[in-house]
Simulated scan of single mutants.
Amino acid sequence: MEAVFDNKANVLNAKLHATHDNSVIYTISTDQTIWGRTYTYVRDANPALGGDPTIVGVVNWKKKTFDVQGQRKAVKDIRRKPEGFRNKSRFWKWADGREEYDIVHCEEGWQATCTNTKEVEAILTVPYRPHLFGKEKPVVLNMTRVALLQDEVFLILVFIYCEMKRQEKINSAAGW
């Protein structure tokens, strides 16, 4: 699956469009207060039984929890850091019986590699240099069938979480 965020580099408030027919797959929205983000919601724009868009994933920024299909877990329970000072990897796993992903930031964006197969299962390409003239490239999400099968919403939440943490780190280092 390849999908494009329609809101430039803003992954907190966007629609995720399938590239093959430009249909909306997910809608991502974030509640904010004057003190910062509170919740980021991922809504399925095409629920199986029809009707209104259904919330399939939530990031609670204050409590540092993820909610996938109604099941809530703390970030500390689904993410682990490897030993070693220079290792930038973060390992994410939603539950026992699911795949564990090594999430790393590369020059083009974020990459999720399955730790069992060593195959890249998902990529979030984030344009990091804004253009003064011309059209800015959108954020693009690519997932393999393996990732789509069990961990689609989980990986979308992980990519959003990691990208926002990266942007916060860059902004604080730049003196914002």
Rank of each mutant, 00 (worst) to 15 (best):
M1Y: 14
A3L: 05
F5K: 03
K8E: 12
K8Y: 12
L12K: 13
L12V: 10
A18W: 15
T19N: 09
N22P: 00
S23C: 01
I25W: 11
I28T: 11
I28H: 06
D31G: 08
R37S: 08
T38D: 13
Y39W: 11
T40E: 13
T40V: 06
A48R: 12
L49D: 15
G50P: 09
G50R: 07
I55V: 14
V56D: 02
V56Q: 07
G57V: 04
V58D: 04
V59R: 04
K64N: 10
T65R: 07
Q69F: 09
Q69M: 09
G70C: 02
R72G: 02
V75R: 04
R79P: 00
E83I: 02
E83Y: 13
K88S: 10
W92S: 00
D96K: 08
G97K: 14
R98V: 03
R98K: 10
R98W: 11
E99S: 03
E99K: 05
V104Y: 06
H105G: 13
H105C: 10
E108A: 07
W110M: 12
Q111S: 12
T113W: 05
C114R: 04
E119C: 06
L124W: 01
F133C: 09
E136L: 04
K137R: 00
P138C: 03
P138G: 03
V140E: 11
L141Q: 03
V146N: 10
A147I: 00
L149C: 03
E152F: 10
E152C: 14
V153S: 08
F154W: 09
F154T: 00
I156P: 00
L157N: 06
L157M: 10
C162F: 09
M164N: 14
R166V: 05
N171K: 14
